[in-house]
Computed example of a mutant assay.
Amino acid sequence: MLAADLVFACALVVMIGCNLYVAPRIPHARIAMQWGFDGKPTWDAPKRIALWGMVVFMLIVRLIIWTAVTFAPDKVHGAELGLVLASVIVAASHIFIVLQAIRRA
């Protein structure tokens, strides 16, 4: 699980660094979180929740995976792959959202 934890930690550091660097550069109070097929935002969130909510989400996912592996190890299969995929996908989507917020500014 060490390699998966390293990927998770790197993704978390990238997201936190991205938030610290980009937050002052986004002048809007709200950030678009999802887009429709026409390319227009379908909903948005307050800036703090949009930026830091994803970090909290990743920590909660890691806590759930740790709990499952610790208390029901015989029922958990592929926890390492799941953690790596979740880390990469959440970090990539967060970076996409941040880049869209910068582009909108």
Rank of each mutant, 00 (worst) to 15 (best):
G36Y: 04
G36P: 06
F37M: 08
F37V: 09
F37Y: 06
G39Q: 02
K40W: 09
K40Q: 11
P41G: 07
P41L: 05
P41H: 09
T42S: 15
W43G: 04
W43M: 03
D44N: 09
D44P: 01
D44Y: 14
D44K: 07
K47I: 06
K47C: 11
R48C: 06
I49K: 14
A50W: 13
A50V: 07
L51D: 14
L51T: 09
W52G: 07
G53C: 06
G53E: 05
M54L: 12
V55C: 08
V55G: 01
F57Y: 11
M58H: 03
M58K: 10
M58Y: 08
M58R: 06
L59P: 04
L59W: 04
I60R: 07
I60K: 07
V61D: 14
V61F: 14
V61R: 03
V61N: 12
R62T: 04
R62C: 07
I64N: 00
I64L: 10
I64T: 00
I64Q: 09
I64D: 05
W66Y: 08
W66T: 10
W66H: 15
W66C: 12
T67E: 05
T67Y: 08
T67Q: 03
T67R: 11
T67P: 03
V69R: 13
T70R: 14
T70A: 13
F71R: 09
A72H: 10
A72E: 10
P73E: 00
D74T: 06
K75G: 01
K75A: 12
K75S: 09
V76H: 04
V76W: 02
H77K: 15
G78K: 13
G78V: 08
A79N: 02
A79R: 02
E80L: 01
L81G: 10
G82Y: 00
L83C: 04
L83N: 09
L83R: 13
L83M: 14
V84K: 00
V84S: 05
V84N: 01
V84L: 05
V84W: 00
L85F: 12
L85M: 15
L85R: 11
L85Q: 06
A86G: 01
S87F: 10
S87Y: 00
V88A: 09
V90P: 09
V90Y: 01
A91D: 00
A92C: 14
A92H: 06
S93P: 03
S93T: 09
S93M: 15
I95T: 05
F96I: 11
I97P: 04
V98T: 12
V98L: 11
L99V: 14
Q100Y: 07
Q100M: 15
Q100L: 12
Q100A: 13
A101H: 14
A101T: 10
A101Q: 03
A101F: 08
I102Q: 12
